[in-house]
Design a protein around this nucleic acid. Structure first.
Lengths: 205, 205
DNA sequence: ATTGCAGTATACCGACCGGTATAGTCACAA
DNA sequence: TTGTGACTATACCGGTCGGTATACTGCAAT
C-alpha cells in the first residue's frame, strides 16, 4: 500500500472535501495535509476543479464497490440484499466521521445542473438506482424501476436526515418502510379493500 | 408591500444564497443585487453569518406557512392532507427555480453539527416532522412518530433526488410509497402470508 | 560526472473575501 | 437654517483564494 504522491494528494483532498466541504477547503490546506506543496499538486491536477472531479469519481467507484461488497456479505438472495442495503446504510451513517453523502453535498455546493461537479454527482445516484433496480428485478418485483426509485428515496432520505440530526433512527425506519414497500411490490396485493389499479396512476413507463 | 431596505437586502441575499449557494455568494454581490451598498448591509446585519441565519430563519417561517397553506387548500381530512403533502412537494420541485431544499443545502455547506447554520437547518426538519406526526396522529396511525419519520424520509429523498436530476418522477413515486405506508400504518395488518420478523434481523434496536 | 526528473521551498500574482473608515448626499423636522 | 439620521460612494484594510515563476535538492540512470 505505498501511496504515490498523486494518490496521497487525492486522499488528503478527499478527506478535507468530505469533512469540511469543497468550497471551504483551499488548495494550500490540501497540499499541507498531503505533506507536499502546491507545485506538486498542480503537477498532477491541472486545477482545483480537476481535483474535485477526481475526488468524486474515485469516491463513486470506491463507494459502490464497498457498498456492494457489504451487501453481498450480509445477504444471499436478491430480496435479502434489498433489505441488507438498509443495514449497510445504517452502519455507515452511524460512524462518527459520517458527514452525509459526498454527492448530495457536492450537488448542494454546486447547484447549477450544467456544472460538471453536479453532473458527476447525479451519475452516482443513477448507478446506485440501477443497482437497486437490478436486485428488485431479480426478486420478482412487479415494477423494479418504481420500487428501486422508492427505495432510493428512503436511502437518500435517511442519509440526509442523519446528516441534519444524528441518531434520529432514520435507518431503522427506512428499513421498516422498505420491508412494506418490497412486499407490496412483490406479492399480488391480496387486500380487497381497495382496487389494485387504484386512483393514483403513475405518469410514465 | 413597500419593502424597506433591511427586507430588500434580506430578500436579495436569500435569492442568491438559494440559487448559487451560501459560500459562493459574496457580500458585495448581495449589496449590488439589493441596489445598495455594503455599508447599509452592515448596518442591519452585523456579519455575513448573521445574514445567513436571518435568511434561514425567515425561510423556515415562510416555507412552513406556505406549505401548510398549500396542503390545507388541497385536502380536508388528515389522511388526505398526508397525501396532499406529496402533491405540494411535487409542484414545488417542478418549478424551474427549484434548487433543492435550502436547509439541506445549508447543512451540506456547513457540515459541522455545532455550527449555528447547521443547527437552524436541523430545526426546520424537526418542525416539519412534527407537522406530519400531528397529521398522522389525527388519522389514526398506530405509530404517528414512525409514520411521520418514514414519510419525511420520502419527502427529503424526493427533494434530493429531484435536485440531482430533474424530472426523475421522484414525487410521484414518493406519493405511491406514501399511500402504501399510510394504509399500512392505519389498518390492522391482515396479511398472514409472512411473518413480520423475517430472516434479516436488524442489527440493533 | 552529467543529465534528467520528481519533488521541495518560497515568493509572488491579481482577484476576491468579509469588514471598516470617511466623507458626502438627501429628505425631513425644529 | 440648522441639525439629524438614513443612505450612498468609494477607498481601503488584512487575509485568503486559485494559480504560477523560479530556484533548489536529491536521486537514479547513462
Amino acid at each position: 500500500m505505498p501511496l504515490n504522491l498523486q494518490e496521497k494528494i487525492l486522499q488528503a483532498a478527499s478527506e478535507l472535501f468530505y469533512s469540511h466541504g469543497i468550497r471551504a477547503t483551499g488548495v494550500d490546506a490540501i497540499a499541507k495535509a498531503a505533506n507536499t506543496t502546491k507545485m506538486s499538486l498542480y503537477k498532477y491536477f491541472m486545477s482545483k476543479d480537476d481535483l474535485v472531479l477526481a475526488f468524486l469519481r474515485k469516491r463513486d467507484e470506491d463507494f459502490r464497490v464497498w457498498f456492494v461488497d457489504q451487501v453481498d456479505g450480509k445477504a444471499d438472495t436478491p430480496k435479502a440484499k434489498l433489505l441488507a442495503i438498509f443495514d449497510v446504510i445504517g452502519e455507515w451513517i452511524a460512524i462518527p466521521e459520517f458527514r452525509g453523502c459526498a454527492f448530495i453535498n457536492a450537488a448542494a455546493e454546486f447547484p447549477l445542473e450544467g456544472n460538471p461537479v453536479h453532473r458527476v454527482s447525479a451519475e452516482f445516484y443513477d448507478h446506485f438506482r440501477s443497482y437497486i433496480a437490478g436486485l428488485a428485478g431479480q426478486c420478482g418485483s412487479k415494477s423494479p424501476e418504481s420500487l428501486a426509485l422508492q427505495l432510493s428515496l428512503l436511502v437518500e432520505g435517511a442519509i440526509v436526515s442523519e446528516q441534519m440530526k444524528r441518531h434520529s433512527g432514520a435507518a431503522e425506519q427506512a428499513k421498516q418502510a422498505a420491508i412494506i414497500l418490497i412486499e407490496h411490490s412483490i406479492i399480488d396485493i391480496p387486500d380487497t379493500s381497495l382496487p389494485t389499479s387504484n386512483a393514483q396512476e403513475s405518469s410514465n413507463e
